[in-house]
Design a protein around this nucleic acid. Structure first.
Lengths: 232, 232
DNA sequence: GCAAAAGTGTTGTAGTTACACCCATGC
DNA sequence: GCATGGGTGTAACTACAACACTTTTGC
């Protein structure tokens, strides 16, 4: 099998899985992709997307592999959240799981594939009860997403190529579960100079119309300080 | 062995270890405990404290177990940092490691035990080159410690029972590798109302003498916002 | 009395909140 | 002409940095 000078410790080997909390944004709502578990135990119940970690890959590779299989998407934003290891967390056996969250743009081709796997988008409010500790994982992913969103403008992967400031603000309203002041949010975001205004307007939401914006190419090492210095 | 309905996936089982970045504070310096590796590969080289994760324990249990064996301490502050899983990170074989950092008070009885294991405290500046990716782990632990320290007053486990504000400030200077203004730091810390002033003074550092403080009993759910709202 | 750390007070400013107000246009 | 979201302006407030200043006491 796999050569290792640790082979004398074989009895210490463990089952290791990844679980993905998949966030998407659609119709002004932050949504979460959950699906019906294909194997026992708890087969058929709602669960996060998961899979085993192979010996020749990283946990992030494994997360990308299962995400690609489910959605067909290659270029997904992934962030490691936490590792859960309670031997009793999975009644089927002692499994250590490494949690990631993923951000994907719902409107992409993914949809058909997703449905083939019996997966379904849920808003945060309508999220069903999930197996094992998966509801805890969702909370933890949300915390991490909030932390990330307060250090950089999230949305490159969640929003379509062009979007209005109102749409971005709405995304932040969803992530932080509060209402940001439209004027203040606009000024703050524009002051960061990460967005570029297009000439085109979105006329569907208002009579005046709202300019579309797009993200400028990502600048490495931007924002080491929090964007919102006071209680966001 | 261990019963599991996942036994059909045996070939997916993995070596899982924990690694601990152990911080201590002594003589106005933040220090890090590293020690000489007892097993091949890289036997004898400097490394973080690590150990295998058994099937019937959590990774945190494992971290506490190895820490207790090394230091004799029971009540250590531990925080999970990150999980590293590059199959090539350990030349001895593919090992996934879950990283924790620990905060301990150096002045405790621990010292003798520690020396028996060939361990040694190093300041951040004098830290030797460590095996594998352990220097990366140290950086990551420092980042996490800084994040934590900006959300709550760290020091309960790093400082002795009674300490002066100057000593606490010095710890923060060490953690963030910068100088905090003595006056501003004092006002900020005292405004948080987590310290209680004792009547006793420390006369060793100044002629005037500085009041000792101690931590009040910990209040759950204190500080959900950052302590330092602006660039710390 | 003076050095040196402990501790207090004061001023200026950046980042933010709250909210008033104008703008453009489809109906 | 007016309702509606888009967008701008402004005053008040807060947390903080910078730094001057006072206190205490051993020498």
């Amino acid at each position: 099998m796999n050569m290792s000078i640790y082979d004398q410790y074989q009895e210490n080997k463990r089952f290791v899985s990844v679980d993905c909390v998949i966030f998407g944004y659609e119709q002004e709502k932050l949504k979460l992709l959950v699906f019906q578990r294909a194997i026992e135990p708890a087969k058929g119940e709602w669960s996060l997307l998961g899979g085993w970690v192979n010996a020749n890959e990283t946990t992030e590779d494994a997360a990308r592999r299962v995400l690609h299989k489910l959605t067909g998407l290659e270029d997904v934003y992934l962030e490691q959240v936490h590792t859960f290891s309670d031997p009793k967390r999975d009644p089927g056996g002692s499994v250590i799981t490494v949690e990631y969250y993923a951000l994907i743009n719902i409107d992409e081709k993914a949809s058909n594939l997703i449905e083939d796997y019996g997966a379904k988008w849920h808003t945060l409010e309508e999220l069903p009860s999930l197996i094992f500790d998966h509801n805890v994982l969702v909370e933890k992913a949300l915390e991490k997403l909030r932390l990330r969103s307060s250090y950089e403008i999230i949305g490159r992967k969640l929003l379509p190529k062009k979007f209005t400031i109102t749409r971005l603000r709405n995304l932040y309203d969803q992530i932080f579960q509060r209402k940001f002041d439209p004027g203040n949010f606009r000024k703050k975001i524009l002051s960061l100079k990460v967005l570029e205004r297009l000439e085109e307007k979105d006329m569907s939401e208002s009579k005046k119309g709202a300019f579309y914006f797009k993200f400028k190419p990502k600048n490495e090492s931007e924002f080491t300080d929090p964007i919102f210095k006071r209680s966001i």
